[in-house]
Design a protein around this nucleic acid. Structure first.
Lengths: 115, 115
DNA sequence: CCTGCCTCTGACGTCAACGTCAGATTCGAG
DNA sequence: CTCGAATCTGACGTTGACGTCAGAGGCAGG
């Protein structure tokens, strides 16, 4: 059982971010009688996963729509379509990054021989 | 010789974006006597390259600092450091994307067998 | 000369994922 | 009990890459 500050530490995000995730419907929390948030240990992994998804260019809304798949393993046609959509988008982005990487490497080589 | 609307068409960005690039010092333009912008054909390629760099997570300022390397092929120590910095950042991001891709693929597999 | 589209500058609007601040509570160590 | 640290809600601020709108002027065809 973690309080919000501890979860923030363990998962490497800010307290504000965790409250924001809850606001967006991504992260549930129990409450103490006084109203303080309490999380399961498993929340650490979940928050880290969210960070990866954000870094991959998904929005809160995308993630919210993926949650049912992640939690239940069950999906309707729409969700499966979205999963593939995001998958393809990420693949495309990787290709683009690879292309930029090659160009930067060329530049680096070029400026090593031409200082 | 291209006017701004034509360049926007050919390079796939908005007219507003082109003016913004100029504002940020990324794109020069000649001017007609009446003050309208005129570009070389080579601007098309350049703008497309900028789009790739933006997509790779660089900011206008980053790109502006890279311009001397791109144009002259000469660099000082600071610029070389920055080139490697961006290169490494992009590599790290690709690794992260690859990781997310694997997880999404797992999910897709899982939801194919568990519809 | 008229007209409809293009372009100009300048300025405010947008969107997402938080940062930050204020003021009030609550917790926990001593 | 006390007092500093952590937490709460609510609300406004930030940043980057543009979108959008207003008002004015330029350009080509008929």
């Amino acid at each position: 059982m973690l309080k919000i500050g501890r979860l923030a530490e363990l998962s490497g995000v800010s307290v504000r971010a965790l409250r924001y995730y809850e606001e967006q419907g991504l992260l549930e929390s129990e409450r103490t009688p006084a109203g303080q948030r309490v999380y399961q240990e498993s929340a650490v992994e979940r928050v880290r996963f969210y960070q990866q998804l954000y870094a991959a260019g998904l929005t809160s809304r995308h993630i919210a729509r993926l949650l049912p798949c992640i939690d239940s393993g069950h999906t309707d046609a729409d969700q499966r379509r979205m999963l593939r959509e995001q998958r393809d988008r990420i693949q495309a982005k990787m290709d683009e990054l690879a292309s930029v990487l090659r160009r930067l490497d060329e530049l680096i080589d070029l400026t090593r021989t031409h200082p």
